[in-house]
Amino acid sequence: MATWIETVEIDEIDTEDVVRFDHGDETYALYRNAKGDCFATAGHCTHEKVHLADGLVMGNIIECPKHNGRIDFTTGEAKRAPICEAIKTYPVKIEGGKLFIQID
Protein backbone atom coordinates (compact mmCIF):
# COMPACT_ATOMS: atom_id res chain seq x y z
CA MET A 1 0.00 0.00 0.00
CA ALA A 2 1.34 3.43 -0.94
CA THR A 3 1.91 5.93 1.84
CA TRP A 4 2.46 9.70 1.72
CA ILE A 5 5.37 10.82 3.90
CA GLU A 6 5.81 14.43 5.04
CA THR A 7 9.35 15.56 4.24
CA VAL A 8 10.40 19.23 4.48
CA GLU A 9 8.96 22.71 4.18
CA ILE A 10 8.98 23.65 0.50
CA ASP A 11 11.02 26.77 1.33
CA GLU A 12 13.85 24.55 2.61
CA ILE A 13 14.63 23.57 -0.98
CA ASP A 14 16.15 26.44 -2.94
CA THR A 15 15.38 26.82 -6.63
CA GLU A 16 17.68 24.56 -8.68
CA ASP A 17 18.83 22.68 -5.62
CA VAL A 18 18.58 19.32 -3.87
CA VAL A 19 18.27 18.32 -0.20
CA ARG A 20 18.64 15.01 1.56
CA PHE A 21 15.74 13.46 3.46
CA ASP A 22 16.05 10.32 5.58
CA HIS A 23 13.06 8.22 6.61
CA GLY A 24 13.56 4.95 8.43
CA ASP A 25 16.38 3.10 6.70
CA GLU A 26 15.89 4.94 3.39
CA THR A 27 17.47 8.10 2.01
CA TYR A 28 15.75 10.30 -0.56
CA ALA A 29 16.81 13.31 -2.64
CA LEU A 30 14.30 16.16 -2.95
CA TYR A 31 14.68 18.62 -5.81
CA ARG A 32 13.28 21.96 -6.94
CA ASN A 33 13.88 23.00 -10.53
CA ALA A 34 14.09 26.52 -11.99
CA LYS A 35 10.31 26.61 -12.51
CA GLY A 36 9.78 25.82 -8.82
CA ASP A 37 8.46 22.29 -9.48
CA CYS A 38 9.45 19.63 -6.95
CA PHE A 39 10.61 16.07 -7.50
CA ALA A 40 11.91 13.15 -5.43
CA THR A 41 14.25 10.26 -6.17
CA ALA A 42 16.12 7.62 -4.26
CA GLY A 43 18.92 9.34 -2.37
CA HIS A 44 21.91 7.40 -3.67
CA CYS A 45 23.53 7.30 -7.09
CA THR A 46 22.95 3.97 -8.84
CA HIS A 47 26.65 3.82 -9.79
CA GLU A 48 28.50 4.08 -6.46
CA LYS A 49 25.82 4.69 -3.78
CA VAL A 50 26.98 8.28 -3.16
CA HIS A 51 24.47 10.74 -1.67
CA LEU A 52 22.95 12.71 -4.53
CA ALA A 53 22.13 15.60 -2.18
CA ASP A 54 25.85 16.46 -2.37
CA GLY A 55 25.56 16.82 -6.15
CA LEU A 56 24.94 19.75 -8.46
CA VAL A 57 21.52 20.56 -9.95
CA MET A 58 21.50 21.94 -13.50
CA GLY A 59 18.03 22.35 -14.98
CA ASN A 60 16.38 18.95 -14.47
CA ILE A 61 19.69 17.13 -14.08
CA ILE A 62 21.52 16.08 -10.94
CA GLU A 63 25.25 15.54 -11.33
CA CYS A 64 26.70 12.94 -8.98
CA PRO A 65 29.48 14.43 -6.83
CA LYS A 66 31.77 11.39 -7.15
CA HIS A 67 32.18 10.65 -10.87
CA ASN A 68 30.09 13.41 -12.48
CA GLY A 69 27.53 11.03 -13.93
CA ARG A 70 24.18 12.66 -14.61
CA ILE A 71 20.54 11.71 -14.01
CA ASP A 72 17.33 13.43 -15.10
CA PHE A 73 15.60 13.69 -11.73
CA THR A 74 12.19 14.22 -13.36
CA THR A 75 12.23 10.78 -14.99
CA GLY A 76 15.06 8.92 -13.24
CA GLU A 77 16.79 8.34 -16.59
CA ALA A 78 20.58 8.01 -16.63
CA LYS A 79 22.01 10.74 -18.85
CA ARG A 80 25.81 10.43 -18.66
CA ALA A 81 28.26 7.68 -17.81
CA PRO A 82 29.36 6.21 -15.58
CA ILE A 83 25.70 6.10 -14.51
CA CYS A 84 23.94 3.50 -16.67
CA GLU A 85 21.03 2.47 -14.46
CA ALA A 86 17.92 4.59 -13.92
CA ILE A 87 17.09 5.81 -10.44
CA LYS A 88 13.75 5.32 -8.68
CA THR A 89 11.49 8.38 -8.68
CA TYR A 90 8.59 9.08 -6.33
CA PRO A 91 5.34 11.02 -6.75
CA VAL A 92 5.24 14.30 -4.82
CA LYS A 93 2.56 16.70 -3.62
CA ILE A 94 2.60 19.97 -1.74
CA GLU A 95 0.13 20.66 1.05
CA GLY A 96 0.27 23.51 3.54
CA GLY A 97 3.75 24.52 2.38
CA LYS A 98 5.15 21.02 2.99
CA LEU A 99 6.46 18.52 0.46
CA PHE A 100 5.14 14.97 0.66
CA ILE A 101 6.48 11.94 -1.20
CA GLN A 102 4.57 8.74 -1.95
CA ILE A 103 6.48 5.60 -1.04
CA ASP A 104 5.52 1.94 -1.43
Rank of each mutant, 00 (worst) to 15 (best):
V57Q: 13
P65Q: 11
E6T: 04
E48D: 02
G24W: 15
T75V: 02
K49I: 00
V8M: 02
P82D: 01
K35T: 12
N68Q: 10
E26F: 06
Y90E: 12
V18M: 05
E95N: 11
L52E: 04
D72N: 15
K35M: 08
P82G: 03
V18P: 07
D25G: 08
K79E: 15
A53N: 03
N60W: 07
R32Q: 10
P82Y: 00
F21I: 13
E77N: 12
I61Q: 02
K79V: 12
D25V: 13
H67A: 00
C84V: 00
K93N: 04
C45I: 00
I10W: 11
I13V: 12
I62P: 05
I62E: 10
G43K: 07
L30E: 11
M58E: 13
L30H: 09
P65L: 09
D22L: 08
G76Q: 05
G55W: 04
E9D: 14
H51V: 06
A40H: 08
H47Y: 04
E9V: 04
D11N: 12
I61D: 02
E63T: 06
P65W: 06
L52Y: 03
F39Q: 07
K98F: 09
D17G: 15
F21L: 14
A78R: 01
V8T: 04
A86I: 04
E95M: 11
M1S: 13
Y28Q: 02
I61E: 07
K66W: 05
A29V: 08
I83E: 00
P91S: 12
I101M: 12
G43Q: 10
R70Y: 05
L30K: 08
D25R: 13
A78P: 05
A78E: 05
Y28W: 01
D14I: 04
C84Q: 00
A34E: 14
P65M: 09
I83Y: 04
L30Q: 10
H67N: 02
E12P: 03
I5M: 14
V18Y: 03
V19E: 05
C38R: 05
H67M: 01
A29S: 15
C84A: 00
F21G: 12
M1V: 11
V18W: 06
D104K: 09
D54T: 02
M1T: 13
D22E: 14
P91R: 13
E6H: 00
R70Q: 05
I83A: 02
C38Q: 07
R20P: 05
T7D: 06
N60E: 15
D37E: 12
D17M: 09
T74R: 15
I87F: 00
V18A: 07
D25W: 11
T3P: 06
H44I: 00
T3M: 13
L99R: 07
A78L: 01
H23Y: 14
E12S: 14
T41Y: 03
Q102D: 06
G59K: 03
G97P: 11
T27Q: 07
C38D: 07
V57N: 13
T7G: 02
P65C: 08
E6W: 01
T15Y: 14
